[in-house]
Each structure stands twice: as C-alpha cells, then as structure tokens.
C-alpha cells in the first residue's frame, strides 16, 4: 500500500488500485470524448454535405417537369432547340446528348479495357521488372496530366489528323473516343495490376504443377480469378469517361447530332452543360434543363457505383 502512494505521479488520495480502476482519471475520459466528438463531427459534415448536394441537384433537376415548363416527352426527344421560335418550341430534346455520353463512354472502354488489362498482365506476369521500372511511372504520369492538356493535344493532333485522313471536319465522336481512351487507361491499368498482384502465388504454382503454360495460367486462371476486380477497374474508368467534360468538349464538335457516326461531331451531357451554363439566365427553362441533365449524370454515376459494389461483392464470394 505504501509503495503505491509513494509513486511520484500518484495522487495521495488514490490509495488503492481498486479505487483507481473504479474511477478512471477524468483526463482519460475527456481525451476519449474529444476524439469521439471530432470524428463524429467530421462524419456528419460529410454526410450532410453529400445529402444536401443530392437533394439540391435532384430538386433542381426535376423542377422544370413539376412546374410544367418542360414535358418529359420534350426532354426525351431528339429535337434540341432551346431558343427556337418555331411553333411548339423551344425544344429541349436531350436524348442525343444522353446517347452521346453513353456512346463515347462505351467506345472508349471498348478500346481501353483490352489494352489496359493486357498491359497490366504484362506488368505483373510477363515482365515485372520492366513493368515496375518503365510502365508504372508512365502510368503515374498519365494520371497526372490535367484534362485540359489532354483536350489540347486532341485538338492539335487528333482533330487535324482525322480531318486530313477522312475529309470530315475532324471534330467528331472518334476524336472524343480517342482522347477519353487515353485518359481512362491509367485507371484501368492500375486497378487491374492491384487485382492481379493480389492473387496468391500458390494458385499460380498450382496451375503450373498441373502442366499449364504461363499463358494458360494467365488466361484460364488469373484472368478468371481477378475478373471482378478487372471489371471494377473498367467501370471506374467508364465513370471517369462519363463525367469528363473539358477534354471531350474541346474535340467532340458540340453539334446536337445522334452519336451513331464516328466522323460526325456530336455532343455529350457534360459538353452541353459546360458550354451553356454561362449563357443562360437562372430560372429560365433553358437553364433548368441543364440541371435535369446534371441529374441524369448523377444518376448514371450512382449506377456505376452500384455496379462496382456488386462486382466487389461477387469477388468476395469467389
């Protein structure tokens, strides 16, 4: 008993261990509470911000339909003429832009997915040394290039190239697809590399021991095993492509055409929003319809996130 009270940091009144344990130092409790309050506050600020954003965009997006300024039929048509004075106008048909966004996204994913997964396999399975030394830094640089630079390069190199080789005006769905493919490639590669690397070495050995060649091991085992992760990478890339505005807008031509011809200029949701938001007056149907497009962008992004969730879930189940 004496020994305890003689310890330098102990208060005199704390005479027994039992007493000390029953009433832990107030300071300890205070520290715990402070930490708890700090993290809780951060979490709630995040949640509130997110939900107010969702609420704001949703309410803005559905407002013109509730007010009857724009009918759904008008919105989901192919006729775009927001300032048109023709009878029946103005026309807010946005289906071309929705399809345009989907089309550039799908096509660029079609180019980037096989390329990205192939490069990732090369980096992890075929030549890890070269991959680590050359490809990895290259990918990191690709991620770091700002989208305006991608757009600028597309504008100076790809658009004239398409113009000269095909005789079209150059600004086109194809130009957008090429620029976007390069932009989403790093996302797909790095996600794929992570997934393939996480496959335990014992599975590769198991496959080799069964008389599989390296390529058979890759194609029959590694790719199948990492498929959920690979798909997640592709979907992440698609989400980026779908949301990308600046670079796309610089090369795609911004004409309200249906996106079924590679050489024709088209528009996407993002390019229409960025081009028009500064030129419209708040509260007018023209401005409101841009919010409706933003809402569609948001819904599509949520859909991509949902897909990723499903994929990772499936990956866990094996």
């Amino acid at each position: 008993m004496e020994q305890v009270t003689n310890l330098p940091n102990k208060k005199l009144e704390e005479t027994s261990l039992a007493e000390e344990l029953r009433s832990p130092a107030k300071k300890l409790i205070r520290i715990e509470q402070r930490g708890r309050i700090y993290t809780l506050l951060s979490a709630w600020i995040l949640i509130i911000t997110l939900f107010s954003l969702l609420f704001f965009i949703t309410s803005k997006g559905i407002m013109p339909f509730i007010h009857g300024e724009i009918t759904l039929q008008n919105f989901f048509s192919t006729h775009w003429g927001p300032t048109s004075a023709e009878p029946g106008g103005p026309f807010f048909g946005s289906i071309n832009f929705i399809l345009g966004s989907l089309m550039v996204t799908l096509l660029s994913a079609l180019i980037s997915a096989p390329l990205g997964i192939g490069a990732a396999i090369f980096m992890t399975e075929i030549s890890p040394k070269f991959g680590r030394k050359i490809l990895q830094p290259a990918i990191e640089i690709l991620v770091g290039i700002p989208s305006v630079v991608y757009g600028f390069i597309g504008l100076t190199l790809i658009v004239p190239f398409i113009r000269n080789t095909t005789g079209s005006i150059g600004f086109s769905l194809l130009a957008g697809v090429i620029v976007l493919s390069v932009m989403i490639l790093p996302t797909i590669v790095s996600m794929s590399v992570d997934t393939i690397q996480s496959i335990p070495q014992s599975l590769r050995e198991g496959s080799y021991a069964l008389g599989a060649t390296r390529w058979q091991t890759i194609s029959r085992l590694l790719v199948r095993t990492s498929l959920p992760g690979l798909m997640t990478g592709v979907i992440l890339g698609m989400a980026r492509a779908f949301g990308e505005a600046l670079a796309v807008q610089m090369v795609i031509g911004n004409s309200p055409n249906l996106p079924f011809q590679l050489m024709k200029p088209i528009s996407t949701l993002t390019s229409v929003i960025t081009l028009n938001m500064g030129n419209t007056v708040q509260g007018t149907p023209y401005n409101s319809v841009l919010w409706s497009m933003a809402l569609i962008l948001l819904l599509m992004t949520l859909f991509f996130i949902l897909l990723i969730r499903l994929m990772t879930q499936r990956g866990k189940q094996g």
Binding site: S202, E205, G206, T225
Partner: peptide
C-alpha cells in the same frame, strides 16, 4: 504435385 497449403482455384 500437391502443396503445403491447400490451393483450390476460385
């Protein structure tokens, strides 16, 4: 060949 840790494929 059979290994130390069971390594069934997924």
């Amino acid at each position: 060949m059979v290994f130390q840790k069971p390594n069934p494929f997924m």
